[in-house]
Design a protein around this nucleic acid. Structure first.
Lengths: 359, 359
DNA sequence: CATTAGCACTCTAATAAGGTGACTGCTAAT
DNA sequence: ATTAGCAGTCACCTTATTAGAGTGCTAATG
């Protein structure tokens, strides 16, 4: 159902104002800020209509209007003003990214920090799951007489490695042969394929059985662990700056959610092929008992390789225009990072180290 | 200055009660709970004396007494009742540790979680810095035509590895030779020694210069990063359960401290050779503006190898007896873990994976 | 018929006032 | 040295009052 131009304008005014002040918006306010040519009475009529339509609500009979989640959705989709970063905000981004970032962990943290600093919200950054990575080769590296390091290389880079120990004594030869064997066995498959209940690999030479099992175990551990380990939160304390969480109980519920970062993974993970995902209230299906909140995330990539998602988590009343512009700009920055700082070399550093650190 | 037995008893009663209820303690309360034979008037006299001595304070003239930081120090040192874990608490510990823990990260998290769950406080676990690790050997592993993985093995296990890339094409031979070269060059030194301003190593064969520099860079990165990366916090939200942080401003200050985990490192790091460290208020020198708090940590080791520290951070009014008993028991549990669950094998798993994960 | 001025009505939030009860400190008696 | 007794203090809770912001509705207007 279409909204008349005037209704749209009024709704936009309400949301804008409420985002800024977190106080119910009165007809007089709207008149002054956006529609001085109309009388408050007319605006009141429109407000009543918008309430009827489900876009606005009244905390109590004699108070101003407050946007509903529905209003925010419309706002984000149509009403929201486009904005660019201010000079000061650009400076902050530069400060965080104008240096060599060697590791994915570092990258995650920087991204989260800069987002949190500019938006003044709690930010979250999440590294891509590797289930989709394709195994390139596997190396067994002898590191002591009875222990070896298992290095799994994927198209995304080096996966977390783990040690294995044997009872006897490891020979260099055995390691080389075993490397060749597992490389050929697993090479070309995706991690997720290898881990499927129905094994793709049927027969295993007995002498390499041990190695084979170890590799499987590592992959399993990794694919599982990855789910929970590579989430970075920044600015949890900022949640308390939001008036909606002044209520201690709500603040606590929110912080409990942040404490249990794992719960956020499903919400963060499923926007792989979306540039931008905005989940308001019920959109985000986090566990019950969590106070209403919104999660805005963007997917980040370098040279077509997706690194992961990052964004903010905060009250439904948040400055979406600002958040979107920040996420957008950071996305571009990350993608351009290497080119901007000294040619091909850096590009490599980044994509390599991403995986290197992917543990 | 010694306290009379009766004064001690009264002070203990005040601290005990205050720890439980967080309400100023009255003379009548003390009479009922600990000294029914005395009159409240007598107790009041003693309380006044203890206040004079700096152990107690009065929020306002007509309220009960509250312990000062000094009182807590004395309490911890002399007055505190020894207690053991309850059956329920033991169960919780078992639940977290009665399974194979494969990685240090996992270990840190489990430790932090169990501490937080039992004490109902925010807990912190911190992995040992590797500056003291001695380099055993270094391997350069070819993973693609132009990239290699640098694996640094120390007495504590495998250090975080990183990739390096070269312009030309890497031969297996070169990798082998380079491995030998850097192993001989760095082997036997501590990480901290290698990183000293005055280089211990003077001459480097030109063909291995690249590798040499890369190794140094990795070590540097590692030693530096380690400071900030391996801190795990659990139960940040629990800080809000403490009445002293009901005040929103204080809660925020506290959460900001937790947000900036790095700030905690100095406080956590310097009890390497202490079993137990209790830092009350001014004892812990965290940044200014932080609300008063206490930090209790213990050092954990397996088979003489120190893993790191773990403990709690909370209001000065905390149940020290409980905290100490928990930390103590967990220390023993961790140390016994391997032996308790299947012989030598497990011990290896643990100490290996500790380093494996030591990123 | 859309718009608007005007007014009665509603509800919150802030302030004040009064009462209650939990403590203490002090004094005088034991 | 201990204690009973009592006056005095202070936080906290409840209730009352008021001011003000904002609405909905009605009737008048172009």
């Amino acid at each position: 159902m279409g909204l008349s131009g005037r209704k749209e304008k009024i709704l936009q005014a309400v949301v804008d104002s409420y985002i800024n002040n977190c106080t119910p918006v009165s007809s007089a306010e709207i008149k002054e800020s956006k529609l001085p040519s109309l009388s408050t009475a007319t605006i009141r009529n429109e407000l009543a209509a918008l309430e009827e339509m489900g876009y606005l609500a009244q905390p109590h009979t004699s108070s101003g209007r407050v946007p509903t989640a529905e209003a925010y959705r419309l706002y984000v989709e149509k009403l929201m003003p486009k904005r660019k970063l201010t000079r000061g905000e650009l400076k902050i981004v530069k400060r965080y990214f104008n240096r060599t970032i060697t590791e994915l962990d570092d990258m995650l943290k920087s991204t989260a920090k800069v987002i949190s600093e500019i938006t003044n919200l709690t930010s979250v950054a999440y590294a891509q799951n590797v289930a989709d990575a394709t195994i390139t080769r596997i190396k067994i590296v002898k590191i002591s007489d009875s222990t070896a390091l298992v290095v799994i290389v994927t198209n995304l880079g080096v996966m977390k490695d783990a040690t294995m120990s044997v009872n006897g004594i490891l020979s260099d030869e055995y390691c080389d042969n075993a490397s060749r064997f597992v490389s050929e066995t697993f090479g070309g498959y995706k991690v997720s394929e290898v881990l499927k209940p129905k094994p793709i690999i049927k027969s295993v030479k007995k002498e390499y059985e041990n190695v084979f099992k170890t590799v499987l175990k590592i992959l399993k551990n990794y694919a599982h662990d990855e789910m929970v380990s590579d989430i970075v939160l920044e600015g949890s304390a900022k949640i308390l700056e939001q008036p909606e969480y002044e209520n201690l109980a709500k603040a606590k519920a929110m912080l409990e959610l942040l404490d249990a970062k794992e719960e956020l993974v499903p919400v963060l993970a499923n926007n792989d092929n979306m540039n931008l995902s905005i989940k308001i209230a019920k959109d985000n299906e986090i566990k019950d008992g969590t106070p209403e909140c919104a999660i805005v995330t963007a997917n980040y990539a370098v040279n077509g390789v997706s690194l992961g998602n990052a964004g903010v988590i905060g009250p439904i009343r948040m400055d979406y225009a600002k958040v979107v512009s920040v996420l957008d700009y950071i996305g571009k920055t990350i993608n351009l990072l290497p080119a901007g700082s000294g040619g091909e070399e850096e590009v490599k550093e980044l994509s390599e180290h991403m995986d290197d650190e992917n543990e």
